[in-house]
């Protein structure tokens, strides 16, 4: 079937390569997104535990902040 339509536009087999390339690109994109997403979760935890200055958070995290070298007061 494919051989018979080999000369038809979009049926020369290259479209398979295109699909593979698109998939690879999508995979690369999603890998990058995943890394960014996970890094953002880590950065949020770091900010809340180490830097946020709300009185409650500051008091609760106080000793850890001093003991981990964060600028505290």
């Amino acid at each position: 079937m494919r051989r018979r339509n080999a000369n038809a536009v979009g049926c020369d087999g290259r479209e398979m390569n295109m699909t593979a390339m698109t998939k690879a690109a999508a995979k690369t994109g999603s890998a990058t997104l995943s890394i960014v997403f996970v890094a953002l979760i880590g950065a949020t935890g770091l900010f809340l535990a180490g830097h946020a200055q709300s009185a409650t958070l500051h008091d609760a995290a106080h000793d850890m902040r001093h003991a981990t070298g964060f600028p505290c007061h």
Binding site: S34, V38, A39, I41, G42, G45, A60, D63, T68
Partner: peptide, 22 residues
């Protein structure tokens, strides 16, 4: 609270570290 936040900060470090591995 110190124990809680110490584990929280190192969990954050751990997540950032593994994002680096990835």
């Amino acid at each position: 609270l110190t124990v809680l936040f110490t584990t929280l900060i190192y969990a954050s470090y751990g997540i950032l570290l593994v994002a680096g591995f990835s």
